[in-house]
């Protein structure tokens, strides 16, 4: 559930009100060195607000937050010096070239000109694949490249904590994969928090997921933990070559099966029928289903365990799907 390293981000009872609107309602969490934390939640859940508080852009209404041991409010400059931040939408100075911009960031970040800076710049340019774009105006770059410049400025000072607000939004699938790889690579050494609403991204990149809804944390764990907790009972999709009614009957009598549902499928030709089998809690009736099929001389053409996707978890926890309650 947690990384092995020391606590890099410590958030305690954080609240933020905008007038009467509660954006963040008292959240607490820790992030440890070497963790890549996916920050999930519907729009307006409080992700961006939380990130803005961590980066000292906003002050909390209540509670406190520490980054790398520094309070983001009272020791703001020290905390900021240890954070690399990429706000949503990658706001960069469009009138500067990539190289000019990176030099500007180095100046502000206090990386001395000369050997140190040259090697740092070379490294991030390499890492973000900006080699042949250095002389381009940022405003002329494609969105994917602009995103890479945004990442480059966030990591050039080798921060201990990286905070990325929807780093892949608006990119095409190829660009998304590339940016994810960069994040993953960075995440091997640094602590990373990034927000997203793409679930595959979480599975691809994160070692831990925090789901936030209406300003509150509704789930916290590895992607696998969240999936299994949301699932509770095993669901198995079975396709049999057998008379429909008979097959259904037989399936429901298999040990450990709680219910059987016929699934209409155009893809099943002739005599094939598809069923969704719901197992009793804790039971795994797959072996029994196979033996039943052999005994009854049904042809078992397919048997797949249905996994609750993170999308399902997300919808259940954030109230997008009110009919289903997460059994946890």
């Amino acid at each position: 559930m947690t990384g092995t390293g020391k606590t890099m981000i410590h958030v305690e009872g954080l609240t933020k009100h905008y007038g009467n609107v509660v954006a963040v309602a008292g959240i607490s969490f820790d992030v440890h060195a070497g963790e890549v934390l996916g920050f999930l939640g519907p729009n307006g859940a409080g992700k961006t607000t939380t990130m803005r508080i961590l980066t000292s852009y906003l002050s909390p209404t209540g509670g406190r937050a520490e980054v790398a041991g520094f309070d983001v409010f009272t020791q703001s400059l020290q905390a900021r010096a240890r954070i690399g931040y990429l706000p949503e939408g990658t706001p960069l100075y469009r009138d500067m070239t990539v190289l000019e911009y990176l030099h500007f960031v180095c100046d502000v970040r206090g990386i001395p000109r000369g050997e140190t800076r040259t090697s740092r710049l070379r490294r991030v340019v390499d890492q973000c694949g900006l080699g042949d774009r250095l002389g381009f105006l940022i405003g002329e770059l494609s969105k994917g490249f602009r995103q890479r410049v945004g990442l480059a400025q966030a990591i050039v000072h080798e921060p201990e904590v990286l905070i990325l607000d929807e780093p892949t939004s608006g990119l095409d699938p190829n660009q998304i994969v590339e940016i994810r790889q960069v994040i993953k690579q960075i995440g091997q050494e640094k602590t990373v928090i990034f927000s997203t609403h793409i679930m595959q991204e979480v599975q691809a990149v994160c070692s831990r997921v925090l789901i936030i809804s209406d300003g509150k944390i509704v789930a916290d764990g590895t992607p696998e933990q969240l999936q299994s907790s949301a699932q509770g009972q095993m669901e198995i999709s079975v396709e049999l070559e057998a008379p429909a009614a008979e097959a259904r009957e037989a399936l429901s009598r298999v040990e450990g099966v709680a219910g059987v549902q016929a699934v209409a499928s155009d893809a099943a030709p002739g005599n094939r029928h598809r069923f969704l089998v719901l197992a009793r809690p804790g039971a795994d009736p797959r072996a029994a289903i196979f033996r039943m099929a052999v005994e009854r001389r049904f042809v078992l053409t397919e048997m797949v365990r249905e996994r609750a996707s993170l999308e399902d978890v997300f919808r259940k926890l954030t109230g997008g799907d009110s009919s289903a309650n997460a059994p946890s």
Partner: peptide, 9 residues
Amino acid sequence: TLELLLTMP
């Protein structure tokens, strides 16, 4: 861009 500038040290 102000957000990025003001979150730098």
